[in-house]
């Protein structure tokens, strides 16, 4: 498959001196489902803005579908569809009018456009509300209309900036199914940014983790998980003294157990990494017993993307923070 995005040594420095993107390079092939994973402010949105011709880069070379972002932005705009994290539709227009207007922006002919709009309204299950003003749509319907609106001109490449942020689990699942279908059946290349590990794991076949403007690691979810190379055991226990003392003590005990490769703090306890962790759980329990520390729970899991994230960025993303994610994406004025 030929390359559809090629980024070499991309650097973006903002007026105030902030280095939002610090020398990144990557390529994406046609038909790929690519995920850009990183916390807020990592440089995801800035990268998307450059790729979608919204922002002029500081330096480096960027081509999309063979077109240079600086010299041929109009050609790029004809083949891409861009969805921002916040739902962007014109609430005063009906669903049908929203889609039709997007088609006009792409210079589509009226009869073709009419058919395409009907097709999308059907695909997104919006037929019944097609002629109602979008203001009255539910959150999930608005999101589907937004997604439909970037598909009107049959783009080859979709940019999805945190497409399911703020959605309830059911709506999120629906969007995931649409995205998978578009990727598989229509061979649309997907460039997705997300903070959700689950989303990246389910959808993406290739991932890059970005932190502080740099790509820290790339690969398929499976490869990345193998790289961590260890299962994890989450422990929580009762603290009789002040927490720190017990934590230190627990770490010391765990450090002496054979097979443990890493110990990290996690919410309300510790996460222990080990190859074949199943075998050392009895050792852990015995050691804690001996020191009279009461274990309250032991959870065992195979490597997840969350572990990879933690390993490479030193941070874990908490679900609660995601739900309350502040407004602001690539189309909004707040820049990342």
């Amino acid at each position: 498959m030929p390359e559809i995005i090629k980024v070499d040594n991309l650097i973006q420095v903002y007026g105030d001196g902030t280095k939002a993107v610090d020398d990144i390079s990557f390529t994406i092939r046609e038909g790929e489902f690519f995920g850009f994973l990183g916390p807020n402010g990592a440089g995801k949105s800035t990268t998307i803005k450059i790729l979608t011709t919204l922002l002029a880069k500081t330096s480096g070379s960027v081509t999309v579908a063979g077109y240079n972002v600086d010299k041929e932005p109009q050609n790029i705009r004809k083949i891409i569809g861009v969805q921002s994290q916040e739902t962007v539709i014109d609430a005063d227009l009906t669903g049908r009018e929203n889609l039709t207007l997007q088609g006009h922006f792409q210079q589509m002919r009226s009869n073709m456009l009419r058919e395409r709009v009907d097709e999308l309204l059907k695909l997104m299950d919006l037929q019944e509300v097609a002629d109602k003003r979008a203001r009255n749509y539910s959150g999930g319907m608005k999101k589907r209309l937004d997604l439909a609106s970037i598909l009107v001109h049959k783009p080859k490449l979709l940019f999805l900036d945190e497409p399911t942020t703020g959605l309830d689990p059911q709506s999120r699942n629906v969007i995931w199914e649409y995205l998978e279908k578009l990727n598989k059946e229509e061979n649309i290349t997907m460039f997705l940014t997300t903070q959700y590990m689950e989303e990246a794991d389910r959808l993406c076949r290739k991932l890059s983790i970005i932190d502080n403007g740099r790509i820290v690691i790339s690969g398929s979810p499976k490869e990345l998980k193998q790289q961590v190379g260890a299962d994890s055991i989450k422990l929580s226990y009762e603290n009789d003294e002040s927490k720190n003392v017990t934590n230190e003590k627990a770490k010391k005990i765990l450090g002496e157990i054979q097979g443990v490769t890493n110990i990290l703090d996690s919410d309300g306890g510790l996460t222990v990494y080990a190859k074949n962790a199943g075998f050392i759980i009895p050792d852990i329990v015995r050691a804690f017993d001996k020191q009279k520390i009461k274990l309250t729970s032991v959870n065992f899991s195979s490597p997840t993307l969350d572990d990879i994230f933690l390993k490479h960025t030193g941070r874990r993303i908490r679900t609660e923070e995601l739900v309350q994610n502040p407004k602001g994406g690539i189309f909004s004025r707040r820049r990342r």
């Binding site: 919204l54 861009v82 997007q102 922006f105 210079q107 189309f331 909004s332």
Partner: peptide, 15 residues
């Protein structure tokens, strides 16, 4: 249009 993001939604099209 700036606040809602609609302006930028237009700007990623060839309009």
């Amino acid at each position: 249009d700036l606040d809602s993001g609609y302006l930028h939604k237009m700007l990623v099209t060839p309009v």
